[in-house]
């Protein structure tokens, strides 16, 4: 067996927005407390699963992120050992550290501007920087693998699109798959992230079964996944939203200077302030056609 270290960074959405209407409702749906419990259970399972597993947990709310584990003030990772008593100790440490940090984090949440979006992108860029440092610190000869799991409950914020995609392209470049698990409606951004980095995307059909889904799909990495029956892949919608109305379009007009996308002809580009000559448009298309026809004749 190879003894390569496997790092998992779990990004948990802790925005209270999604849970606010679920406190009063009947006991049949998952509430915030159960949600946290399930995630801790999953993290414990991940650590107990393999001696080479390492874990990092990042929480994010509507405007803040926090490294919940390992404790930022205590940098040393506690390495699990084989003996049973020690293993128990390791899990105990995780539970305590996460519990303490979580409490502190939630108490410090500013209740003033609770918005429906979360700082997933911020947590993701921090996770990438964290992984980048771990990669830099890797000794020659060691073969470590890294993976990011995003557990999201809130809807996407279109404001974060560009930053989020930048993070996804980075992840693709440094070969870190992003897995996505969403409790709410389908997230197009998360879907694209998983597809581009060859991670697994899942919208949990029944929140009560969350633990089951987490253990089924996200405990293992690429090699083991080949042997699992995975959810059928759906075609990802890669259509862009126009910059002017934020609606998805099939065909559109792209500014040749800055690549901004518009759903209709405009006279100036709102991003780079280039002025367009409407006549110019027709010239450029006819040019393209004559050129290609010329090419075919030859």
């Amino acid at each position: 067996m190879s003894s390569s270290i496997k790092h998992l960074v779990v990004i948990i959405d802790l925005n209270p927005f999604y849970w606010s209407d679920k406190i009063s409702s009947t006991t049949t749906t998952l509430n915030f407390k159960q949600y946290l419990k399930i995630i801790i259970q999953f993290c414990n399972a991940y650590i107990a699963f393999d001696i080479n597993h390492r874990l990092t947990i990042i929480g994010c709310s509507n405007n803040e992120t926090c490294f919940l584990y390992p404790d930022p003030t205590n940098e040393s990772l506690i390495i699990p050992t084989v003996t049973k008593t020690n293993l128990f100790e390791q899990l105990f440490v995780i539970d305590r550290v996460v519990e303490n940090n979580l409490k502190e984090f939630i108490e410090n949440l500013s209740p003033q501007h609770i918005s429906s979006g979360s700082m997933i992108t911020m947590a993701l860029t921090q996770a990438l920087c964290y992984i980048n440092r771990l990669i830099r610190d890797t000794l020659p000869g060691e073969k470590n693998s890294f993976r990011i799991l995003i557990i999201q409950t809130t809807t996407d914020t279109s404001k974060q699109y560009m930053n989020f995609m930048n993070a996804v392209f980075t992840s693709e470049k440094i070969n870190v798959p992003i897995d996505g698990c969403i409790l709410n409606n389908d997230s197009s951004l998360l879907q694209q992230a998983c597809d581009l980095t060859s991670g697994i995307y899942l919208r949990v059909p029944d929140p009560n079964g969350l633990l089951q889904y987490l253990l089924w799909l996200y405990l293992t990495d690429k090699e083991v996944r080949k042997m699992l029956a995975l959810p059928t892949k759906v075609a990802v919608d890669y259509r862009p939203a126009c910059f002017c109305h934020h609606k998805l379009i099939d065909t559109g007009y792209v500014c040749s200077v800055c690549l901004s996308i518009y759903c209709d002809n405009t006279s100036t580009c709102s991003t780079c302030r280039s002025a367009f000559d409407i006549n110019n448009q027709s010239i450029s298309t006819s040019n393209g056609i004559t050129d290609s026809s010329r090419r075919q004749i030859r």
């Binding site: 059928t232 892949k233 759906v234 075609a235 990802v236 919608d237 890669y238 259509r239 862009p240 379009i249 099939d250 065909t251 559109g252 007009y253 792209v254 500014c255 040749s256 200077v257 518009y262 002809n265 405009t266 580009c269 780079c272 280039s274 002025a275 367009f276 000559d277 110019n280 448009q281 450029s284 298309t285």
Partner: peptide, 27 residues
Amino acid sequence: FESSLVRMGFPKYRTYTTSNANISSTT
């Protein structure tokens, strides 16, 4: 340098799933 609006198309991928011949529901 001239600037211009270029018309472009953004096609959607449509497919069958490969493992069992279910038609993906997005199409």
